[in-house]
């Protein structure tokens, strides 16, 4: 521990990032520029999220890291190890035990509490980016609340596919003001954005931080005749039998075999521990990995 400052970043950097976070919380949905640092991992691996997490962590905190809902994938494991090593904080895979949860592309199934912080890794913070490539212009559009273009994208979806086919990074309007990219979470998670926990979004390469304070009003954009739908695979989890959780489709052989499993591994594990068994599941045993 003596080799590093607590949580890797130096104190000045953390102050700078905290100022950006406070500004982001004061103006929900507004993208605050910040001086993103080089982190010991490539851009796209969550450099923004890691900097935000490092700035809000305290030594007493318990940290959880998920990647697409899973606690055991490369990204989640390496970021968890990073904080174990540089901050010496306790880590957990249990949502309810964590104080800070860093996430890539999912919101945990379990409802979060007011004393928890959810940190998102964001690749492209600008929801208008693929429609309007000029940064000067998108900033002006945000400033003047000119969001007609966002609906042009949804219009194109419907005219091509007969339905709004945007299924992740689904644009939302925050407190009736800023249009925000909720990071590439599935649109199934969009209704959960109105939650008790503080939500912080960090984009390292793009050098932006934005935030949602607890219970902020978040509305998914839609058309009157094509309302927003929080969709998921029409199936139950094959391991725990849950019919309400967001599912991953897993190909299990080369003969068309497949199974649907909860993308939130902690949620699935705790349900199986409580005795729920899905169609292809086996009874839960504590020591089986």
């Amino acid at each position: 521990m003596s080799d590093y400052n607590f949580a890797y970043l130096d104190e000045q950097t953390k102050r700078m990032i905290r100022r950006a976070i406070l500004k982001g919380l004061a103006v929900p949905g507004y993208q605050v520029p910040f001086a993103s640092r080089e982190m010991p991992m490539p851009y796209g691996w969550g450099t923004g999220g890691v900097q935000v997490s490092a700035s809000v962590l305290t030594p007493e905190d318990t940290m959880k890291v998920i990647d697409q809902g899973a606690d055991d994938t490369t990204n989640a494991v390496s970021i968890r190890k990073f904080f174990e090593k540089t901050a010496g904080v306790a880590t957990s895979e249990e949502t309810s035990k964590a104080d800070v949860i860093q996430t890539r592309h999912r919101i945990p199934e379990e409802d979060l509490r007011e004393d928890q912080i959810l940190v998102y890794q964001v690749p492209i913070p600008e929801p208008l980016r693929f429609l309007e490539p000029r940064e000067t212009e998108t900033r002006k559009m945000h400033a003047l609340e000119e969001y007609g273009l966002m609906h042009v994208k949804l219009y194109e979806d419907i005219s091509k596919n007969g339905a709004i086919s945007t299924s992740y990074a689904y644009p939302v309007k925050v407190e009736g003001r800023y249009v925000m990219d909720p990071s590439p979470i599935p649109k199934f998670d969009n209704p959960k954005l109105e939650m008790a926990a503080v939500q912080l979004f960090g984009a390292g390469r793009e050098q932006r931080i934005y935030a949602l304070p607890p219970y902020t009003k978040v509305v998914s954009l839609d058309f009157e005749d094509y309302p927003f739908e929080a969709s998921k695979a029409d199936h139950a989890c094959d391991l725990c039998g849950s019919e309400t959780s967001y599912l991953d489709e897993v190909i299990v052989d080369d003969a068309g075999g497949r199974m649907f499993v909860c993308s939130d591994t902690d949620f699935c594990r705790s349900r199986r521990a409580a005795g729920h068994v899905g169609a292809q599941g086996v009874p839960y045993e504590e020591d089986v990995a």
Partner: peptide, 8 residues
């Protein structure tokens, strides 16, 4: 849409 039309 820029002037508020929201009916596809």
């Amino acid at each position: 849409m820029a002037v508020g039309a929201r009916h596809y």
